[in-house]
Nucleic acid binder design. Sequence first.
DNA 1: TTGTACGCGTTATCAG
DNA 2: CTGATAACGCGTACAA
Lengths: 322, 322
Amino acid sequence: MKMDDIARLAGVSKASVSRVLNNKPNISDALRKKVEAVLKTYDYQPNLMAQALNTNQTKLIGVLLPAIGLDIFSDIVHGISDILREQGYELILADSKGDIEQARKYLEIFRSKQVDGIIYFPTLLSPDHIDYINQIKIPTIILGQCHNGLKKSSVAFSDIEASKEIVNYFHSLGCEKIIHIAMPKNHAIGELREHGYREAMKDLKLDPRVIYVSDLSYDSGYAICQKIIEADAIFVAMDRLAIGALRYLIENNRKDILIAGIDNMEVSSMISPSLTSIDFDYYQGGQSSGQMVLELIRGHDVVSKQLSYQLIERESTRRQHV
Amino acid sequence: MKMDDIARLAGVSKASVSRVLNNKPNISDALRKKVEAVLKTYDYQPNLMAQALNTNQTKLIGVLLPAIGLDIFSDIVHGISDILREQGYELILADSKGDIEQARKYLEIFRSKQVDGIIYFPTLLSPDHIDYINQIKIPTIILGQCHNGLKKSSVAFSDIEASKEIVNYFHSLGCEKIIHIAMPKNHAIGELREHGYREAMKDLKLDPRVIYVSDLSYDSGYAICQKIIEADAIFVAMDRLAIGALRYLIENNRKDILIAGIDNMEVSSMISPSLTSIDFDYYQGGQSSGQMVLELIRGHDVVSKQLSYQLIERESTRRQHV
DNA sequence: TTGTACGCGTTATCAG
DNA sequence: CTGATAACGCGTACAA
């Protein structure tokens, strides 16, 4: 059932049908009624490919994340998806696995698929990569961080502030030897969180000590703890690693060491001891970026947004945790 | 840069350009070289919308899952995505949240977006819903279960067999009072696992006892344990629930009760005690369904496939676990 | 082997 | 306000 057919059945031209479908003003009520009736009867659905060819809009948004499996990213995807679908857009999802080459490959695929917009959560932002991003022609939102050199709209979380809060929290609990387990050095978010840690330690006039994991697996969090000789508390750059670290502490009877993460994974409240963490509103972040990419497509200006956070206190920061 | 331009620059007709692009045989080497040179120079990219309109293929596959956040589904997505992208397809991802109405809504969206194929992981398969699925015109793969009434290709995991294995494993450890924590009754996978449990118990001439959670959250797994008075072992229908249950056992000092789940989530090896579980190859399942949907699109017949599993023994099934 | 001409189903333009 | 008609960019019969 195409527009031609509808037009014939309604006894009008397909131009008029098009006008009705797109709510154009220049059409009489009489014709409108007639066409609408036929439209209803035959349950007409416009052919999106033809529409796309003509309007040069696919109504597709490319979403590139570093790891769709982590629960924070699934929250983000829900946020994005809920907003976009409301407005008739669909999303094409890709996973860069934290690798820049992969990321470029997917951005390239997005381009070739002619998506109308892109939401990109990068990991490392090298000067090189920033140049690459800036030169993208398609409306693009950078999610997860904002960077001076970046000429794109962005939605960031308060990684630095949140990290500071954790250090200060440990200090308020009487800790002095506060160690930071950081992400590998090529992770932008890891750098932000490490930065927050160092700043807070400096403000408190405490000696920072940072150790880096090799990757973001639970195992890495576990393994890295072998390097820790002495500590009052450990601030781990993400819950996932923290859960691994916690396991090590338990196995080695270091229940005197306090520990906290960031991300507030769903499982963090369920493990024993439950994990103190920072909660970011990732769903909200997804919604914001979805909204912003649509505004960008509609010609609005580049803007930046930063989201808030909340400290969730649990058992892992109590003395002698279970 | 469109085909016309390339044709002009190469001094040939656009038909010839098209032939080169699509590797048609009926073209001379001389022309081919000439065209390829121009193609390279100008980095020509065909307009997919025009292609789509013409060939009636969007190269888009709709993937509908009950919960994209769970790690099993992210494995599935990776499997699907790796296969599809190899062959130039992209995937549109949607989350039914386990709700049939939502699922229908998304299947409807897939249709309106004119996807070439669908991969659908349903939860409940009511007769009504089976009818609905059977009447879908687009090539469709049902993932996660196979059902007699279903006239679609399917990729299933060995839920029944795996469940039996766990019960038998508990029995080999000397357990007699083996309780099953099952998913809410409207979950097909839950039913399969419960079925496996009941069969195994019958074979062992043991009394089955099944209790149902209200939803699939960690909390539900925790809360349901309050109903358990006496047990040697608990077989939980999924790791997520099992982790909640485990927390309850620890808090209430019931370290004598053995416990095992299904899914082998990444975190299951990291919690204390680590959780005995069944590992399904979800990535492989994703790959298979991706492969099958492409074959369906190419006109192959409807087929079914069932994947294997593996029991992973861990601390939660050792006597007096940590 | 090569090129011409038309069709895919819309939206946009321009007379009437 | 309405209806022809021309784009949109590609594939493909069909003719040469």
